[in-house]
């Protein structure tokens, strides 16, 4: 059998070049401890930042800020802890695509529910009130 190691696998090796920890092109990519620890420290700091951010009143921007910090943390975990920075780009594409499809799903569902919920709620309030009145009498 003459399998080739496909573009995906080859890209794996290209990733090695810009990295100093390992001198070989065939071994595993080993993330240096210092790098792991730095990422860990940043993650902890960002966790404090998330909590801290709730004490600042930014209105709707609070949610955006919390999510932005979460995305940064997630990106760090993916890139370094999960080795995505040195991994096949396709694996990254899989990750990004899954997030994109979640966003698509949420986007449409939210767009739709935003439009019909006020009507439904108004009807519900009416029902509740008429029930309450009926019960009151």
């Amino acid at each position: 059998m003459s399998h080739t190691t496909t573009p995906d696998a080859t890209d794996n090796h290209n990733g090695h070049k810009d990295h100093e920890d390992h001198d070989s092109h065939h071994g595993p990519h080993v993330v240096p401890f210092s790098m792991l620890f730095t990422i860990f420290a940043i993650l902890i700091v960002l966790t404090f930042a998330t909590v801290g951010a709730t004490y600042v009143q930014l209105g709707d921007f609070n949610l955006a800020l919390a999510l932005a910090i979460a995305v940064v943390k997630a990106a760090l975990v993916c890139l370094y802890f999960m080795h995505l920075r040195w991994d096949s780009p396709f694996n990254g594409l899989v990750l990004v695509a899954s997030f994109a499809f979640v966003a698509l799903f949420i986007g449409f569902a939210l767009m739709d529910s935003k439009a019909y919920t006020p009507e439904v709620d108004a009807a519900a309030v009416e029902m509740i009130q008429s029930d309450a009145e009926a019960a009151g009498q």
Partner: peptide, 21 residues
């Protein structure tokens, strides 16, 4: 295929804009 699921819901109370999209 991922962008058209709402066409099962045209009469289910889905909003007009979503229907059109």
């Amino acid at each position: 295929g991922f962008l058209v699921w709402g066409h099962h819901m045209f009469t289910s109370g889905q909003s007009a804009l979503t229907n059109a999209v």
